[in-house]
Design a protein around this nucleic acid. Structure first.
Lengths: 122, 122
DNA sequence: TCCCAATTGTTGGATGTCAAACAAAACCAG
DNA sequence: CTGGTTTTGTTTGACATCCAACAATTGGGA
């Protein structure tokens, strides 16, 4: 599945992890790194090189918070938002390709069953 | 799920990867490392430290092949076979715990649907 | 007010994975 | 036979992840 994902992403050089990161930041502008790490099920420290990369590519900005000088607020740049839009289309294609052997009903059933074996988050 | 797996394994210090390795070796005694890597979807080189660890713990033996001196045949030691037996019980408990919210029918459905979204192996 | 505890982002060390390059051994074409 | 090609296990370097420790900052209680 990851190979398939990578194929769908093509030349854009974004893996499942960075894609998820972008999605979460888009949905929660100004999020701080600790919160993003929690949402993405990552260690705080794992995020540092990932954000370094996204920042270096001009997709995400770390903006120092005015209220709390320890905190970096995370924001998508216009470039980041534009790339994410393209990425979402490709991910959708990837998921359709992945589930192409399933009817719409079967997809719903699969997702519902998977939801029910999710352990509660610790 | 991996956390749950680790909990079920308790003090035995075997993760999903090493467990799979042991299962494959048990089912294919004398297997060579390249074949094991293929079966486990691992790189040949990734196997080296894993087998080093299993060998150091006395669970697996690398036995030089008589016909082809490049090849190491892989075998479970008696200790390895004994540990694997215990591991299988724990994995079974883990899987039952994981699927405890599903009826037997639902489990079958889930597995069948998952099978059908499996990409063909490359 | 002032010191101690908690939080935040980062660094450093460990581990597991991959890809590329390698030496030894086996295979094969002429 | 012999010289080039393939296969096998290993080493090395890159990368992502975790955990533990850290400095800077904030907050709370005596």
């Amino acid at each position: 599945m990851f190979d398939d994902f990578a194929d769908a992403m093509g030349e854009l050089e974004i893996g499942p992890g960075l894609f998820g990161t972008l999605v979460i930041i888009e949905a929660n502008p100004g999020l701080k790194q600790t919160e993003l790490a929690h949402a993405a099920r990552l260690d705080r420290s794992s995020l540092v090189p990932a954000l370094d990369k996204l920042e270096a590519r001009g997709l995400v900005a770390r903006r120092a918070s005015a209220e709390d000088r320890r905190v970096n607020g995370l924001w998508l740049t216009p470039d980041g938002a534009a790339l994410l839009k393209k990425l979402k289309q490709r991910v959708m294609r990837h998921e359709q390709h992945l589930a192409s052997n399933l009817s719409a009903d079967e997809r719903e059933t699969l997702i519902a069953l998977l939801q029910r074996i999710l352990p509660e988050r610790r």
